[in-house]
Structure formats: C-alpha cells, structure tokens
Design a protein around this nucleic acid. Structure first.
Length: 577
RNA sequence: GGCGUGGUAGCUCAGCUGGUUAGAGCGCACGACUCAUAAUCGUGAGGUCGAGAGUUCAAGUCUCUCCCACGCCA
C-alpha cells in the first residue's frame, strides 16, 4: 500500500425539480459529474457522502399536480419514485435521494429562519398584492394579465408588457384578470412577507468569494456580478402566499402575521442538502451524530471537503443565498469548499427544451441504449468551459470509436486470442521485458495524470486521459504482436498476453467512475478477486498470475448503426410523445 | 441597452503567470498488421488562433475598438 490518507468528501448535486423527467442537458450539468466524482473518490478509499433530492415545493408543482388531477402531495410522491428509479438506472450512486418536502427539511428550514430572525437578518416587509377571490389565492406578477396602460396590448403581464417592454406594477393594468382562471374578481390586499437581508451580509460574502481563488471563473464571475451589479446584492423575499411548501415558522414557534404562508422554494431547496443527509441517517438507522459529522464543524465536519455540482443557472443561489443562510444563522454549519458549475448542453443546433419536448430525456435515453453509452459521451463532452453541443453524429462516432473500437475491442481481441492459443486461463511462460516495462511506466504516468484531472474535477480532461490509457493497450499489443511471436516463441506470446489480460481488470477499475456497468462485466469475466484502485501499475498489472481462469465476455459495447442514428434523430427532433 | 461567457484545423475541443516550426481526438488520405466488434497501429495533408489597431525584443496568450454566438439581467 502506498499512501493511506483518507479524506471525507461531501458531495451534493443541484436538486432537480419534481415536475417531470429531466433531459440529458440537466443530467450532465450536475448529477452525472457529481456521480463521477463520488465514484472516483470512493474508489480511492475516501469516505464519501453523496446527496441529491427532488425539489418539490412551489407553484409549478401545484400546477402540474392539478393538471394530472392529483393532490400535490400524492403527485410529488409519485414523481419522486419515478425520478429515483431513473437515477438508479443511470447508475447515479447517491447515498441518499431525498425530498425537500420531508419533515427533516421542514424542521431545518424553520430552524434556519428562526436563527436568521434572531440574528437580525430577516426583515418583515408589507406589500400590496393582488388577491383573486375566485382562485382563493394571491397572484404573483406573472399570474395576472391585463391591458397595458402604455401601448394597449391586451396580454400584458403583471410585471412587464411583452409588447412594449415597459415595466409594470400589477395595479397599473387595465382590466386585470387572473392568468390561472381568467377571473376578474380581483382585489388588492396588503400582505406581509419575510426578506432575507442578503445586503447586510454582502461584505462577508464578498470576502468569502474572494478567498476562493481556485473556483472556476464561471462560478466566481456570476457571484461577483450579483454582488456588485447596480445597487449590489439585493434582499430577497423568502415567503409566498401558497399552500404547498414549508409553513412559515420561527424555529418551532408560530410567526405572528405569517399564518398561512410558506417559505419560498429557493430558501428551502438548498437546505435540503443538509436535511437529505439527515434523511439518510433516518433511513439507515443512524443517529443524528452520524449526519451531523458531515455538516457541523463543531461535531466533526471541520475536516470535510464539501463540493457542490450545478448548472450555471443555479450559481447565484449557491454562491450567495445559501451561504447567506448559513452565515446568518450564526451556527457552525459547513460552508461549501468548491463549486463546480457547468454551462449548457445544446441539442442539435438548438436548446434542449422541457416544455417543447425537444431533445432526449433520461427515460427515453435508457430505452434506446444502456446508461454507460450516455455516461461516457456526456461526461467526455461535459460543458465545462462553454456551452457544448449534442449531435447524433458526434454521439455515434464517440460511442463507436471510444467504447466499441478502442476499449471493447481491446478486451475482445485479448481474451479471444488467449482462448484460441492458450485456453481460458492466464498463460504461463516468458517474462516481462523492455517493452513491458515501457508500457508499465507509460501507464503509471498516465494514471497519475488521470488522478490529477479527477481530483481537480476536470471532467473532459479525465475522460481524454482515460481514453489514452485504453489506447496504450492497443499500441502495446500492436507493437508486441503476440500473434506473430506465437509462431516462433510461444513463451514470448504468453508473456505478452499475460500482461494484456492483466490490463483488463485495471481498465475496469479505472473506468468504473465513467462506465460502471461495463466495468462490472470486465471484472466478472476476468474473475478478478480485488477491485482495489491501482495505485502502482507495476503491482496492479501482476494481479492475475499464470493459471488464473477467466471467461471471454460478450462484446462490451454494440456499435450504433447509421439507421438507428437517423431513426432517433427523427424521433427526438420534435415533440415528446 | 447593461453584464457575463465564448469565437483556435471540416467536426468536438486543449493551449497556466506572453517566448523555439500552434496541439489532441474524430473525420479524411496513404501505409502496416491480421489476434479482434471491417476492429487496431503508424504516417500525412489541413489553421494568417473572429476583424482591426496598440504595448513589447517577442502575443492565440496583455490593452483598446468593432463583429458574431450563447446566456443572464433590466
């Protein structure tokens, strides 16, 4: 064993909204790279806590439930089960996939609000808002329509007229009506809301962001912009007049004047990272101390490295709002150490669109190909530095070349050659010479580069290095040419094949964070006893000794035919069925 | 309109604090090999690094202006 330093790593992925199945752009922007990082760190022997959840509160969930003709709680429970199942089939190895509607999150959200209020970071603001008697609810700006007083456009929204772009106040509208029911039975009522005084924490946040010199520019530039743009960081409302959400309470106490209100979804959603860890403890018969050691720096979390994954649209909440909640609480909660943010993945020249059903959604992806194919392509093309582009041609080429030709075919040619010349066991005879030493040394340096990229969460670079590691096997085999050696010097061929067979379990372990299912098949075929990470190539490549039995596996990957590609291209171009 | 991020070979992308003939993979051409999923390996042809100006002994890499794409905000 080399170094045995064991770190503790807390990983969270931005939590997907509950209404509906996410598309591949959502997947590659948070959950998938988070899973890569979690799997890699577990493989290196670190202690990992990987948490995700569904984000269930807010108006869209209510509307989606209404559309489905179900009570919102029932709708959310069903959708959570569906999303959980799909995540599982994609190999997303969450330690827990929680729900922001959990009791744990309710209690924690109320707790944070109480702490913030005690510390003076909550302001109560009275505002006038439009109330719809027919709908029995307040109408947020965009749920009111009417005639624009400026240009006469009759479908102006409460916040802005789309026709003349003039900003409006809902009370400016002529003949206002509810966008939900169309009712004109509206009245202006005074209502009170809570605001998180982010502006009071601005300097603290600014200094904190400044201290994060190793963060991606995408992350810090967005944070800086919100901190300094215009009048600087603004206070934000954290409550809404809705039914579905965390009831507003000050800790466990009622909050006078806030009866019937709930916390706004952006306030309670990130708290679910903590609550989700508590849910993990509950689900696994653990104690509070077991989850608190990940989150409370006074209870063991001071040596935890906390890494968040998210798309760029989520950066403001994670660099400012959620940290403001943590800082303002005055309690020793763990702040994020590193934020890995992603740009968007575009689909065939346009955007993935949930509303238009454009692109490939997670369930559809698994209908047509195994998870590994998607995982590999998406991760090796992750939109790290700029928006990236999914095209079916690129996808087909990447999968066929990298997975089928380079990796899959390597396993195939080595195992089949061995079976035909030596039988299905690792052959004896010969010894490793200069060519073998050169390969081992090359792989050792590539291994170190691969690890460095994964440690730095450089996803695409890690994928490229992994691919180079696969290619090294083919290069070696081509140069060593055991099929030629076998005719004149069978012992030499045996040595070459012995090393080549040993490459397979090493490839399996190194590739597992990207393509866990194929890795599993490789290990099973080779009947490998250990799945330990190959810290040293020299020893890792002699794990399978002469006489070790194996089986020739079925082809690991099937190539994508042109006909299939064109069929899918057609199928996913338009509207989701 | 303001802000942000990009604009590097046909395609997808690397290029840190400026320094020899600008890199990788795919695709393409040619060659080698024949164990393997018509797979693999090698060689090569492709770029005035969005445009223009400036700083410098030296700029893809810094400054300014402009153009384009995408995104956010208003």
């Amino acid at each position: 064993m080399a170094e045995t330093f064991m770190a503790r790593i807390l990983i969270t992925s931005a939590i997907p909204y509950i209404n509906g199945i996410k598309h591949l752009g959502n997947l590659v922007g948070s959950q998938l790279p988070a899973d890569l990082f979690a799997r890699y760190n577990r493989a290196r022997g670190h202690e990992v806590m990987f948490i995700c959840a569904t984000d269930e509160h807010g108006t869209p969930a209510e509307l989606a439930a209404a559309k489905a003709g179900k009570p919102v709680a029932e709708y959310c429970a069903e959708m959570h089960a569906i999303q959980s199942d799909i995540a599982d089939r994609f190999g997303l190895s969450f330690d827990h996939f929680g729900r922001s509607s959990s009791d744990r999150n309710k209690a924690l959200t109320q707790h944070f609000a109480g702490q913030l209020a005690d510390n003076g970071y909550i302001a109560e603001v009275a505002e006038k808002q439009v109330y719809s008697n027919a709908d029995g609810r307040f109408l947020p700006d965009r749920y009111i329509e009417g005639t624009c007083p400026n240009c006469g456009y009759d479908k102006a929204r409460g916040d802005q007229c789309e026709n003349c772009t003039k900003q409006l106040d809902p009370t400016d509208l002529i003949n206002p009506r509810s966008a939900i029911s169309g009712s004109t039975d509206l009245e202006v009522r005074e209502t009170k809301h809570l605001f998180l005084r982010q502006s009071a924490l601005k300097d603290q946040l600014d200094a904190w962001i400044d201290s994060k010199t190793d963060w991606p520019v995408l992350t810090t530039s967005i944070a800086k912009k919100w901190l300094h743009d215009g009048d600087g960081l603004q206070d934000r409302g954290i409550t809404r007049d809705l039914d579905w959400g965390v009831p507003v309470k000050r800790g466990s106490e009622d909050w006078p004047g806030m009866e019937g209100k709930v916390f706004y979804v952006w306030f309670d959603a990130p708290i679910e990272y903590i609550a989700g860890t508590a849910e993990w403890a509950d689900a696994n018969g653990k104690s509070d101390a077991d989850w608190e050691r990940w989150w409370r720096t006074d209870k063991g979390a001071d040596d935890v490295r906390y890494v968040q994954f998210m798309g760029k649209d989520n950066v403001p909440f994670h660099t400012l709002s959620f940290p403001a909640t943590i800082m303002g609480s005055g309690e020793p909660w763990k702040l994020v150490d590193y934020i890995k943010s992603f740009n968007y993945l575009n689909y065939d020249g346009g955007q993935f669109s949930t509303s238009q059903g454009r692109g490939v959604f997670m369930d559809q992806a698994l209908e047509i190909l195994p998870a590994d194919y998607w995982r590999w392509w998406l991760l090796s093309h992750a939109p790290e530095t700029s928006d990236a582009e999914f095209t079916w041609e690129n996808f087909q080429a990447g999968v066929n070349k990298d997975l089928a030709d380079v990796l899959g075919n390597f396993v195939s040619r080595v195992t089949k050659f061995c079976r035909s010349k030596f039988g299905e066991e690792v052959p004896d005879g010969g010894s490793y010479g200069p060519e073998e030493q050169a390969l081992i040394s090359d792989l050792q340096s590539r291994l170190e580069a691969y690890q460095a990229h994964l440690d730095a969460i450089e996803v695409r670079k890690a994928a490229a290095e992994l691919r180079a590691i696969w290619v090294a096997g083919n290069e070696y085999l081509q140069a060593a040419a055991p099929w030629a050696a076998f005719k004149t010097d069978p012992d030499r061929a045996a040595a070459i094949i012995r090393l080549s067979l040993n490459l397979i379990p090493v490839y399996a372990v190194l590739s597992a964070p990207f393509i866990p299912d194929a890795s599993e098949k490789m290990l099973r075929a080779m009947k490998a006893e250990t799945t330990a990470w190959p810290e040293q190539m020299h020893s890792a490549l002699s794990m399978l000794s002469a006489g070790h039995a194996f089986e020739v596996p079925d082809n690991l990957f099937t190539k994508i035919e042109d006909a299939s590609r064109m069929e899918w291209q057609e199928r996913f171009a338009g509207t989701r069925a």
